[in-house]
Design a binder for these strands. Structure first.
Lengths: 339, 339
DNA sequence: TTGAAAGCGTTACCAA
DNA sequence: TTGGTAACGCTTTCAA
């Protein structure tokens, strides 16, 4: 077990005090000459700071905690992966945790993560109202993705312009002549920044279309559950009451709908047009293609990471950034003629 | 900023020395009565050990480092997410890093991760021959996924029974009458545990079929690149030389092939049957379905995590575990008749 | 069974 | 500009 080279070793080698070496290495002080010598010696000795010791002494760790609601959801999984990559690119470690659907688990994880002394938090909150956010945001920069943390004014956020997104979808479907639209949304209550019900109602009214809300459990690995939930909504015995389009607020749901349609022998898009609300990869390959609202993941990741690191490094104030959607049309068709 | 409650605080409150409290909390020693009192007091005070201080003092951190080759690859992304979830379920933190395709980056990250004092490593090695694995594996338990670390005999591994996987695929395709099969594989050299070329040759010989190797760059976000690479292999002007099936060693490649086929106006599976070699979700939804070899991700994750934690906690020896494949047939059809 | 004291490797404050 | 020295909060060895 090769013993670790410590600051003390470098100090001894260069004939200075550990403190001086520490400062020199960080470029915080020291004459140019000293800094040069110290760096040189550290280099040849192969010295590397010990991040753990540093974290204990300084309270910061060059680590960012990423806490997401559930990586079972493909969008979040890909988001987490991208955030981690972006952070690494900035020289930070990501420590990722997954609340896996439980708000209580979320709270517990938060406490554990805080103890790791991360320099900042990137969270996709399950419960944006939870009281713990406030205390957290006061201690360390926090950027929430998807919902603002209403109780924690000092936290930053990246939110989605849902109103525009809904408008794009309903404009599209209505222009194709769809009169009855099923909206598939998660069971958990909607939040101020994702007021699904309200937006659906508004769009329905604006276009004079009929909507059916289908609430499904969060992305489950079990497609059957999903199918069961969807089947009843899609198979009204009276064909004139059956929805001709499904608008899915999660792409996982969209895939669930496609599966359900398969089992029910509904042609997509012949009998049913399907629209997703995220932009998972391979939307172009699903069946005849899946029309989606795209939010530009790079933009989301960048808005979150750049904002957080600016706050961490330069103490920049946190803010709310809004992501604007685009509609990518694939595979939706006009509503089938009434028979 | 509410001051942190330390071991000292608990010790003061209960009237014992910090050392005693430390031991009692961990259940390492102390009379039953002492342990009870200490725990009780810690509880009411809301004491939580500081993981950073503990890591510095003890050298262990209840953290596991997960290093993967590239989370751009969907399979690895999902693997990383599942590993993280499994680790959390066992009360460990995951610190995930992504070498993002570069073996040199891999080496660099490894050094950084080691400094975080993880209790173990879970790696999907880019370069299983790299010398650094040996030193690492001697210091801390390492489990490699996908390839054994030949230079690090003390490391454990989870490998895939590729021979069986290839056999399943070729048996399937040959039985459907396919005579010319394109095999899409990554450009990076094959490894002892993934001897793609050798297995292809063996299967080709066994079934008397013709194979074409198509080497593509690793999972890229740019579908065009992929299409360009594939196009030439799939569009021999002489139809009797054109492959009737494509066997893709990565599902990302399979999706790439499906995209390429779309652009080339090749019907799938009419003109071209496509088989994937991983089991990404939604394989059932891609076009008319994608036949895949499934490796049971739960099994992979479990084999890796349980083995690693047994070594960490109980000093159990590490071993090589092999995952056996299953063929999931979807959407492949008989080879088109020769014209 | 309990406790005192010496680390663990840095950083930060305050003198020199 | 530099250096002592005291944290940081815990574990561990060695004595009591």
């Amino acid at each position: 077990m090769p013993k670790r080279i410590t600051l003390q070793d470098v100090a001894d080698a260069v004939g200075l005090a550990p403190a001086t070496v520490s400062y020199a290495l960080r470029g915080e002080r020291g004459s140019d000459e000293t800094v040069r010598r110290v760096r040189q010696t550290a280099e040849t000795l192969g010295y590397q700071v010990d991040p753990v010791a540093r974290a204990l002494a300084s309270g910061r760790s060059r680590t960012v905690a990423v806490l997401c609601g559930s990586t079972r959801d493909l969008w979040q999984q890909s988001l987490a992966a991208r955030l981690a990559r972006a952070l690494m690119a900035e020289g930070r470690h990501a420590i990722v945790a997954d609340a896996d659907g439980g708000p209580d688990r979320e709270e517990e994880l938060l406490a554990m993560l805080r103890d790791q002394r991360p320099d900042g938090f990137l969270v996709a909150p399950l419960d944006p109202f939870a009281p713990q956010w406030e205390a957290l945001a006061r201690q360390v920069p926090v950027v929430a993705i998807g919902d603002r943390l209403s109780r924690a004014p000092s936290a930053g956020s990246v939110v989605f312009d849902n109103a525009s997104g809904f408008r794009l979808v309903f404009d599209h479907l209505a222009s194709l002549g769809h009169q009855r639209i099923a909206v598939v949304l998660p069971q958990r209550p909607s939040t101020p920044d994702r007021p699904a019900e309200r937006l659906v109602a508004a769009e329905a009214k604006r276009h004079g279309v009929v909507t059916t809300l289908v609430r499904t459990p969060p992305a489950t690995s079990d497609p059957d559950t999903m199918t069961d939930h969807l089947a009843s909504a899609l198979t009204d015995p009276d064909a004139r009451k059956r929805p001709t389009a499904a608008f899915c607020l999660t792409d996982s749901f969209a895939f669930g709908v496609l599966r359900a349609a398969n089992r029910l022998r509904l042609a997509v898009p012949g009998d049913l047009s399907v629209v997703g609300f995220e932009d998972v990869e391979f939307a172009d390959l699903a069946g005849h293609g899946l029309t989606t609202v795209s939010w530009g993941r790079e933009a989301v990741v960048d808005a979150a990471v750049s904002q957080l690191l600016a706050a961490v490094d330069a103490d920049a104030p946190l803010e709310t950034r809004t992501i604007t959607p685009t509609l990518v049309v694939r595979g939706t068709t006009a509503a089938p003629a009434e028979s």
